[in-house]
Amino acid sequence: MPIGGIIISVRPEKTEEILFVLVQFPGVEVHGHDEQGNVVAVIDAPSTWVMEKIVKKINVFEAVLSIGFTYLNMEDEVDGPAPGERIPGLFHGVELDAG
């Protein structure tokens, strides 16, 4: 179960709005923010796959300009993915197997 430390850079005037959005994501904790639009957050997710999905969803907001990772701990996940797995699903708009 990985834990990631991230800095989300948002348009400063939209920081409050994004803070409100962030608390809706399960596993996302906001630890601080500043006037320049830097938001320090921690993602505690069941897998790096879910973490990636959360990051993608946060990134969709227009006010979010970039998400920078600074730290990732994945000590529970070191055995690596299974080879040759197949992921059913369509390209567009269909949820893929969450793994």
Partner: peptide, 26 residues
């Protein structure tokens, strides 16, 4: 993983992020 260890790692993660932008966390 024990809860306290997860809490420790989360704080570590937050501190690492905060330190890059010069933010002090309590």
């Amino acid at each position: 993983m024990a809860q306290s260890r997860r809490e420790f790692l989360k704080k570590t993660a937050a501190l690492s992020a905060a330190s890059y932008i010069g933010m002090n966390l309590p």
